[in-house]
Nucleic acid binder design. Structure first.
Lengths: 123, 123
DNA sequence: AATTAAACTTGCAAAATGCAAGTTTTGTCA
DNA sequence: TGACAAAACTTGCATTTTGCAAGTTTAATT
């Protein structure tokens, strides 16, 4: 039986932050959006080729879910499917940007702090 | 045996976005940060009381992990532990803000679009 | 029609999360 | 002090999500 595709994502609360995370706060969705936004990727195989190595079943699930939730659409029926961001998907750009900025600021991990914490707490 | 707490989070790649998500891209971390940033929460039980109902073991794990990763610290040894954001934690504010903006923009879910998609795709 | 490669599925293992019920710790106060 | 209560934390097990490897289906191309 086809895995119930009609499942509505369950909202944990009405908080806008929580709601957003319920939609794209999984392990892969934002990376797919990143691929489309910054790397111009449009196809299944292009997404597959990203260095983070998503697996095929997950990629498939996410593409379906992102489509259902209105972040992306596609043209060209099966084989040569081309995905593109909707307005809603494009509206995630500020989110990705702020995440990227944060990531760049802290990319050289603070090993010093880690060492400190390990001493301080009884980990 | 105490669950290996020394596990270093595995980076999927060197992409700043990917790295950030590897740190706080789980289901709960950003909601805890939100609670501290916007609701002034500081204690275990305050976090527990949030409407999204995190469970105790997860909360505990996240607090430890966020501490290890330098997003939060605490004062006051066990009982009356008070958590607070570090500089690094505070630097997530732009991220939460952009997420919140997005969430508010789309809070009234596009049921119309959903209906459309359901017809279009053979879901 | 046969080939091929992109798109998608399946089955099972591992990891993360959810839930309910505990136990430990430490401030409070009789 | 020492019993008590409440905060902090643990444990065990069910469920869900993700990871991995190997498939099958589908549609362009020849």
């Amino acid at each position: 039986m086809k895995k119930s595709i009609d499942q509505t994502i369950k909202k944990r609360s009405d908080c806008p932050i929580s709601c957003s995370l319920d939609l794209v706060g999984d392990k892969w969705s934002l990376l797919i959006i990143r691929d489309m936004l910054y790397l111009g990727k449009t196809t299944y195989n292009e997404f597959l080729s990203s260095k983070e190595t998503i697996s095929t079943n997950i990629l498939n699930d996410r593409l379906i879910q992102l489509t259902k939730d209105g972040f992306i659409t596609f043209t060209g029926s099966a084989k040569r499917k081309k995905y593109e961001l909707t307005k809603k998907g494009l509206d995630l750009k500020p989110v990705l940007e702020s995440i990227a900025l944060f990531g760049m600021k802290y990319s050289i991990a603070d090993k010093e702090f880690l060492k400190h914490v390990k001493k301080t707490m009884k980990l």
